[in-house]
Amino acid sequence: MSILVNENTKLIIQGITGREGTFHAEQMLQYGTKVVAGVSPGKGGQTICGIPVFDTVREAKEATDADATILFVPAKYTSDGVKEAIDAGVELIITIAEHVPVKDMMEIYHLSKRKNCKVIGPNSFGIISPGKSKAGFMAHKIFSEGSVGVMSRSATNCYETVSMMTKNNIGQSTCIGVGGDMIPGSTFVELLPLLEADPQTKAVVIIGEIGGNEEELAAEYIKNNMTKPVVALIAGKNAPKGKSMGHAGAIVSADGTGSAENKEMLLKQAGVHIAESTEHIVSILKEIM
């Protein structure tokens, strides 16, 4: 099983003719992802790495019946690209760009809920179900197939954790970069039910950060609904207050909203194992699995 993407996922790459788009199209194909179409306005009719290119997402979807799309387009065009994909009826939309204006994400967030589709990111490395498929730019060598579902706001912390998991023979079912922005398209709490329901997933790792309340909402859900063990790390305990730590979302306000202490306390109360460092995540997993 796994969640969101698997060996049958038919993926569109929006922005496939760009430098990053082309490079990662090849990487994803090599990994085994079924990349069925590319989209690049005005460049329809070409093929890239054997992938047919269309002018619009709608044409790409009509021709291939794709069920997911990933956008390799700059931040300022992300909003247009996502709206096009939503309008074309694509169910899963993955956005990787950094620095997407939060107002654009506010619109997209509410639009996607109304249209019943899932947006992952932005500021995300994408999604990988190791051994099956990847939709993203992650260095896939460090991932290995297994039974731990991983969700992370940070790419680097996720890489660090996953590479140590792999070295210790703990594989992953699906790893999702929810992204480091203030408004992510999908939050931990929206993805937890999928991991809970997935038969391949036996445990869940949440790599959170200071700022926002996504971890707090996750804690409430876990407390009431999760049967699988959950391990969580909250990065940024020692970050200065009132300063964004590079991730737009990682900011603790002067009154302490979004602090690591509060998140850890609520997660702990929900029965989550709190890890002090990425290394600690792995030692906890070894104990509980």
Partner: peptide, 22 residues
């Protein structure tokens, strides 16, 4: 110095935990 804010925060957390100041 790090190549991502997550790693940056993790590094600062570990250094602070070892009673050093960034």
């Amino acid at each position: 110095i790090s190549n991502g804010s997550g790693m940056l925060m993790s590094s600062i957390d570990l250094i602070s935990k070892a009673n050093m100041t960034v």
